[in-house]
Design a protein around this nucleic acid. Structure first.
Length: 227
DNA sequence: GCGACAG
DNA sequence: ATCTTGTCGC
């Protein structure tokens, strides 16, 4: 793929927040996807004591959930972890990894929030706008918003609300297992996003996309972390 | 000032 | 995220 990022990553906290407000205007909340044959998963891991981080992108065949392509990129941390400005820390190497992918995906599942963000522009939305592809925000924990505990059965979900608006869904992907937080990233509806996450998580709490990306990145990191 | 706070 | 062992449960 050939992503074309048209903005700098070297920004101050204030500039980054301002940029999010500007780019958030480009986010599309409706389904703008055709046939989805390949889905990408993204994850990032950090080195123990150095300022290195590794970004992994895996591409799965939608029907079989088999990995058909992948890439891992090593980079230096150049932005601190600030809740709300997560994308400025992890997206640089993620974008580079996508440049190495040969099987272009029609949908991307991110490890983090999409619209469920203070400025409605979490990591998933940011990546979606930059690549102009449909993305889903799938987080293990909540950034903000209120919600009622969803039913205990797989598929149960309850709205995540902030400022009187539904910004995502708390989705139970497995019976009696802690739910995950799903939100629209870009070019997809919340309903379609949840449908896909359920299809991608037939046996585990997290979708296969993030599981595969997580395994790959930690496998690579492991081979360089042990003293 | 006191919590909350994606990974 | 990362630092870290055993342990309770299916």
């Amino acid at each position: 793929m050939e992503p074309k990022v048209k903005h700098s990553w070297k920004l101050t906290e204030e500039e980054a927040a301002q940029l999010q407000l500007e780019l958030a205007k480009q986010v599309v909340t409706e389904d703008h996807l055709d046939e989805v044959n390949y889905i990408a998963g993204v994850d990032v891991a950090y080195s123990k004591h150095s300022d290195k981080l590794f970004a992994a992108v895996v591409v799965l065949e939608a029907e079989s959930l088999n990995v058909v392509d992948s890439a891992v990129v090593e980079d230096n941390v150049h932005f601190p972890y600030i809740p709300g400005l997560f994308s400025f820390r992890e997206l640089p190497p993620v974008i580079k990894a996508f440049q190495q992918i040969k099987v272009p995906p029609q949908l991307i599942v991110c490890d983090g929030q999409g619209l469920a963000h203070p400025r409605r522009f979490g990591l998933a939305s940011h990546l979606g706008v930059l690549l102009d592809l449909p993305t889903i925000g799938c987080g293990k924990t909540r950034l903000l918003g209120e919600f009622e505990e969803p039913g205990t059965v797989r598929g149960s979900m309850s709205p995540l609300v902030d400022q009187g608006k539904v910004i995502g869904n708390v989705l139970r992907t497995q019976d009696g297992i802690k739910p995950i937080f799903v939100s629209v990233g870009h070019k997809i509806s919340l309903r379609t996003a949840c449908d896909w996450i359920l299809k991608l998580a037939p046996h585990y709490r997290l979708p296969e996309t993030t599981r595969q990306a997580d395994q790959l990145v930690n496998r690579v990191l492991g081979g360089r972390n042990l003293p």
